[in-house]
Amino acid sequence: MLILGISLVLILIGLYAIITKRNMIKVAVGFALMEYAVNFLFAIIGFHKVPGMKIIPPILMEVKTTANVLSSYSDPVPQALVLTSIVIGLGVTAFMLSLALRIYNRIGSFDLDEIKRLKG
């Protein structure tokens, strides 16, 4: 529970940066932070801690598995989801940064207030 709570705090830090920061690079940093926090939350949810049982990665070491061993793998489904999400996050970050670079070349500032003032 404490672990989930701290990762929620990390999500809120990212949300704070996205909404209140006035610098485009800081907004991109906030997006990346929030994405990391959500990915980590998913990995924590996939980690079923059963008392008295060791959790191992979802990689089959021996062909024959018993029922006792089965429940001690960490959940592969959220891990596959997060694997997709990490790669898409890089695409989002790269696109945001290229937009910021173009706006900087046009206006000469990363300041969002400045951009709003120059509009129309």
Binding site: F47, I55, I56, P57, L83, L90, T93, L97
Partner: peptide
Amino acid sequence: LQAPDLAIVQIVIEILAVVFFVAV
């Protein structure tokens, strides 16, 4: 958290993201 695949991908993606940020 016993997710070695995620750790590998995260390291690669993190390096690329920092390189993009620093280039900008």
